[in-house]
Design a protein around this nucleic acid. Sequence first.
DNA 1: ATTAGCACTCAACAGCGTCGAGTGCTAACA
DNA 2: TGTTAGCACTCGACGCTGTTGAGTGCTAAT
Lengths: 345, 345
Amino acid sequence: MTMDDRKMRILQAIIDDYILTGVPVGSRTISRKYETGLSSATIRNEMSDLEELGYLDQPHVSAGRIPSAKAYRLYVDTLLQAGKIPNNSAESIQAHFSGRTRQIEDVIDRAAQVISSLTNYTAVVLGPKGKAPKLQTVQLVPVSRGTALVVIVTDLGIIRDSLIHVSAELDSDTLYNISRNLTEQLQGCTLQEACDRMPDMIQRMRDNDEVLQGLYGFLTERKELPRTAQIAVGGTSNMLAYPEYSDMEKARSFLSLMETRDKLEDIIRGNGEMAFTVRIGPETGVPEMADCSIVTATYSTRTGHHGTIGVIGPTRMQYSRVISILNMMGHQLTEMLNDDSKGRS
Amino acid sequence: MTMDDRKMRILQAIIDDYILTGVPVGSRTISRKYETGLSSATIRNEMSDLEELGYLDQPHVSAGRIPSAKAYRLYVDTLLQAGKIPNNSAESIQAHFSGRTRQIEDVIDRAAQVISSLTNYTAVVLGPKGKAPKLQTVQLVPVSRGTALVVIVTDLGIIRDSLIHVSAELDSDTLYNISRNLTEQLQGCTLQEACDRMPDMIQRMRDNDEVLQGLYGFLTERKELPRTAQIAVGGTSNMLAYPEYSDMEKARSFLSLMETRDKLEDIIRGNGEMAFTVRIGPETGVPEMADCSIVTATYSTRTGHHGTIGVIGPTRMQYSRVISILNMMGHQLTEMLNDDSKGRS
DNA sequence: ATTAGCACTCAACAGCGTCGAGTGCTAACA
DNA sequence: TGTTAGCACTCGACGCTGTTGAGTGCTAAT
């Protein structure tokens, strides 16, 4: 027995209906609402076949069928092949980003909110990441007598700042000179390389021992922390609205997963820099998400780093809608982050 | 009829038991577990009195009693009067802050996590706020040809940064000179004052028109945004574990409240700078939190600004434990933020 | 190949009795 | 007068039962 066109259409109808209602769908429903040409009995036979082929599951004998992960996979694949991604709601996404100057954190945060409110699922947005960021500028800003703020600008645009102690005598000008010196010597280095070079520099620049030591300590601490990358989550409460999560225990474990940002980042970041990823149920590799799907898209910055935006929802997700929205949002972010007049990367 | 000592002890016992179990408590339980000297019948009479006085509610006639908000209020008040705040777990809080250099955001975030994991309730931590922050330093850091990063340090320590456009000719030194100039003129101003002065300055410093314009735009946008103050939430999923929230709809509205940071800030920030606040049930003024309590404490920075830490839990919260933990944490934060060698304010 | 008909299955739901925790009242007691 | 024992009563929780309805699978007819 093999998959023919009619089976395909019936499967499609079943999936559509299930996505809509969330209730196991029976042969009668399909015959009435979708495939008008056939009687329920015929549909029944086809459904029986589809079950044997692994596309349908039956919660129990006298209930309707629900699509299996395999069915969703097929569904999504044909969806993507056909390029059936509607392009509506473009302007509405833009409308949500009204302000002009924006920090990357704000943008990410906002994006997560917009996506979640547009989709009614949970949205996750990850900041840009990729090859090791390169130093562009190092600057020491005097704050008060004896303390200075370290500002480090990388091509990722991530500013890491921290107070360090400096001797009280160092005035603004001196700090500036040190900064220029440092910038010249370290420009283009990765954080790692900068760390490696510091001991050497400390040797040479005897005078400003204390400053450099402080900076060194700062760098060694920060260099291994791309972990605390920007991550924003929106609409976690949306998931509770779906009957899939009417089980409290499930809901709890899901929410607590959303709270542990580290794990969440691993899950979302996932496989590389593909434009799209759709992981369905078990494909997510996360037991807590056995009946969730994750759809991700990427955006990129001027400097060639990639960020990820993702939606987490029940397996019976409105895939085409979600993919469309993520698509739009990806473009929108890429645009915003590459256009300096509006934002910064 | 009036409140005597025995009634008080019985009420105490009822509250303790209810906090422990979450189940309406009956006269028999009290007679057996707590007030061994009296029979259940006596307790019953007393409970009947307590109900009449408004300290107990009866979910239905043949169930036990549960404490009313008024009872919790009395309970907490006597608790605070007696100064019965245990001082354990001090070291354990310290242990959770291991790293050295820390950004305020990290500290806040971490604090929320620590509190929520220690209490098993939901924790909210607000960054410092108070009188309008005063400018300390303004610095323009060159990023790439034609763009510069604005770094503004205030006595709140909040660094607001944004890219602005500058003419490509301006090199690092020029930017530095402008920065020094700006710093000299604006030091000690509030953001508002700085905004007011800018037009004047733009007149005078013709040369650097573009830079100042950009800065002006930046300031006007930022000055009204103490709203996006730092706020961190931890352990929202904890609440789902309490039977109070076994109702999905309630849980959802609670979670969605936790997601709208603006409202949340208003709720937590609450009344001024009192060392402690305990708001019980209706006292919170938030309908979604009709059966929640909110306990808050404050911490302060070297510069006299105050931040707030809060715990949100069911009305039958372990008040003494929570208050104790918040107390410790408040001290800990105050200490960390005032000690420059460990953190920065 | 499709369809109509029929027997069968099973979750959901409502009704019913039982159980047990808890109350309120009254009468007896110290 | 305050305390206690006893008893009738209430009411949610639980388990059992029968009914209903959606849905299937099979078979025979078209």
